[in-house]
């Protein structure tokens, strides 16, 4: 079984993200591997360790710096990496990235695509399902457990009505919930070995995907970023408990509209 893991490099959201003139200030921000992608990668590496998968290929569509994220993924256990590095892909929306991944999917022919549920920066959750749709393969999102060795896998996912257990025949695309596993930490050996693993750099043209991605082909656009509104100051109630309770209840109903 060959597994393709698409990953995204995002800003470390634990740092203070600043917004200026409608844009996120990227300068000096630490860039990291999006956390749901770590779950997807961990699942892939576990399948490889169990002997179910034969190869784990990690891919990203992103700028030069995204190469670091691919190396981190290889340090965690991916066998090789593909970096789609093309200025023409800049400004892609979810659909643009999905089109590029679908083109790569046609080339790599993975049995399984393991993606993160959503990216840690935009929380869109669009790329995985769109890629599956474009490739014409089943998509199982929000997956919490993977069982079996293929060609049919048993998948547990969190759905509207609770846990759903679904049998799926490969090829398929799965997006990982963060309860799927506990991603491993990169070992020092893994870090040093990662740079010896193969990394291919491709352009959109190499993939036969020229003219499908990038700002010009995006169907959605981010007009501007705004910092979250500062939390309003809290209010302290004093007095007799019976009086306060009624006061708080009224506010919850009238102002917060939590009840009724």
């Amino acid at each position: 079984m060959k597994i393709l893991v698409p990953v995204k490099q995002v800003m470390d959201v634990e740092l203070n993200v600043r917004v200026a003139a409608g844009k996120v200030v990227e300068d000096g921000m630490t860039l990291v591997l999006s956390k749901w992608d770590e779950n997807a990668l961990e699942a892939a590496v576990q399948l490889k360790e169990a002997g179910t998968a034969s190869e784990v290929v990690v891919v990203t569509v992103g700028p030069e710096s995204a190469g670091e994220t691919l190396r981190k993924a290889m340090a965690m256990g991916a066998d090789r990496a593909v970096h789609v590095l093309d200025p023409a892909a800049d400004g892609s929306d979810s659909l643009g990235v999905a089109r590029v991944l679908a083109a790569l999917g046609a080339k790599e022919k993975p049995d399984l695509i393991l993606a993160g549920l959503q990216a840690q920066d935009t929380d869109m959750g669009g790329v995985g399902p769109m890629t599956a749709e474009l490739m014409g393969i089943p998509c199982l999102s929000n997956v919490t457990k993977i069982e079996g060795t293929g060609p049919t896998l048993t998948i547990h996912r969190r759905g509207d009505q609770g846990r759903e257990v679904i049998a799926v025949t490969l090829p398929a695309l799965i997006t990982a919930n963060d309860s799927l596993n506990q991603p491993r930490l990169a070992s020092l050996k893994g870090i040093m070995m990662a740079k010896k693993k193969p990394m291919d750099t491709l352009t959109l043209e190499n993939l036969g995907a020229a003219g499908v991605a990038g700002a010009a082909h995006a169907l959605t656009q981010i007009a501007e970023f705004q910092p979250p509104a500062a939390r309003a100051a809290g209010r302290k109630f004093t007095g007799e408990p019976e009086v306060i309770a009624k006061e708080v209840f009224d506010l919850l109903v009238k102002e917060a509209k939590l009840v009724g």
Partner: peptide
């Protein structure tokens, strides 16, 4: 080793120390 190795080692050591 390279500059990139240094950055990655620092970053990953930081993650390890922080988590473990």
């Amino acid at each position: 080793m390279t500059r990139e190795d240094v950055k990655m080692i620092l970053q990953e050591a930081h993650t390890f120390v922080s988590d473990v």
